[in-house]
Amino acid sequence: MSADAIPCTRGGGMSTDAVLTLEGLSVHYGARRRRRRVLHDVNLSIAPGETVGVIGETGSGKSTLARTVLGLVRASGGSIVVDGEEVAGYGPRQWRALRRRGVVQYVFQDPLRSLDPDLTVADSLAEPLLVQGVPRAEAATRVRAFLDRVRLTEDLLDRLPGELSGGQRQRVAVARALVTEPRLVILDEPVSALDSANRVQVLQILKELRDDGVALVFISHDLGSVAGVADRIAVLYRGELVETGAARDVIAAPQHPYTRLLVRSAPTLHSAPADRAERDALRALLHA
């Protein structure tokens, strides 16, 4: 059906107004002889309002990528431009100033552990605003005004995280990332811990967010969980971006053997027995 040749990489030219641009990013852990390369020469640019899925297996460096962009891990080379600022060489003070603007936010994988068990939902949600210096009363009204967007009700505000269901907790975690009206939200496996109904609900919220012009980076090991929301997909394999392209192209016509294995491995409703043989062949190819 689709006749055009599919370019393997796309969208490097929009870097002037991009919310995030990574060029030649590399990260190492450990020092001297124990030095291990975690990320190598990663190039990625994210336009405002764009949703990019970053796919990779455990140990591929996908979480490190997120943590580097957030300043929790130091880059050992390359450049990171967040909202027009080159942040690769930033010290703690500069990072704090940038973070207080609330431009970039993060949603953790485990919703239970990412909320302080001793703070009520209202307190957790207000925190990013209070840190910015917003007065307490104004923060409370802004939090209230926000609840609808994440399908939470006001009676949950006085509860502790332990008193919420898994789906509610993840929506609170998403809400906390959104109250500062960020331009970029990085989400690490936001739906892996949820069951079908909650998964659909959170994905729906994310879709609406994208329609509001927020850029999303959606990190997952599963191509299937980002297929429904991502405009573009970047595949991370052993610390390198091996394939970047429009979601439809990457899924329908994967180029790299690892991407092909990902597509063939993702559980779908219409899998054929022939997939099994293809997977075996791809595994052999990747391990060779």
Binding site: L70, L72, R96, A97, L98, R99, R100, R101, G102, V104, Q105, Y106, F108, D110, R113, S114, L115, D116, S124, E127, P128, V131, Q132, R176, T180
Partner: peptide, 11 residues
């Protein structure tokens, strides 16, 4: 993670 979340918010 909740302390990291606070740090990411600029705390």
């Amino acid at each position: 993670p909740y302390v990291e979340a606070a740090l990411i918010s600029g705390a």
